[in-house]
Amino acid sequence: MARRMRVRNHKVVLNRSAGGDAGITALLVVLGILMFIPMYFSVMTSLKPLDELWIFPPKFYVINPTFKNYADLFRLMNTSWVPFSRYIFNTVLITVAGTFGNLCLGSLAAYALSKIPFPGRKTIFQMIVLSLMFVSTVTGIANFITFSLLGLIDNLLAIILPACCSTLGLYLMKQFMDSSVSNEALESARLDGAGEFRVFWSIAMPMVKPAWLTLIVYSFQGLWNTGSSVYIQSEQLKTFNYAIQQILSAGIVRAGASTAAMVIMMIVPVTVFIVSQSNIIETMASSGMKD
């Protein structure tokens, strides 16, 4: 048996048939290409000059790449009656405020749930797990009523406040604290007379940096893509993604500008993910759900 043990990527790999390896590699390559094609086409199409966009049949590659579509996109943006910078400002404001709020409230709550044995924390955590099981569309109508009562209709707070209490990042951070922050370290600080806030800030928080980053990335991805919302009616409070959707809705006629818009919307979250990938995977290692 030991004769057949092999080491791959610092791990012992057992009982692998060569045929299986080849089959799996082939399948992975095919799937990878299928996943990649739409992205590839968006980028290619966004770089095609006008005459190449209408070649029949369409080409897989660009002959004379140009940034003219991106220039067109910005020209189209400037024809909107609300200055385009306003849409971008709204998206940045929502994203920064919502992410910051979610980070503050979420990490405090995660610490309390993970490290302070107060009565009722199990119930609260179960509610949080339950909240991961349904999409927020369900709460939309009731929230519309709440926002009307609070006078928050047509106010960006209607988007920011619910984002502050989003639960996925909190859940991941709590699980990460359970598995990687030892109670002994916290206990010795408490014996030295440090209050809970001090223990939280100077001992627990520095140990869960990957989880912070994961929470930030998740919150960011959600908020960056905020489109039209029933809570927001004024044009000057609409978001960047909403404006992009208006351009996309013209369909294939504006294929060049549309794909340029898609590429711009995509680049930001994908770059954020590339930078934070190893931290997110580290956080996900403790994402498991106990029953």
Partner: peptide, 17 residues
């Protein structure tokens, strides 16, 4: 490669084209 489509915003609208 596999994860990017899920965070690519409205990129899926390329299928409309």
């Amino acid at each position: 490669i596999f994860y990017a489509p899920s965070i690519a915003g409205s990129m899926y609208q390329i299928f409309g084209i």
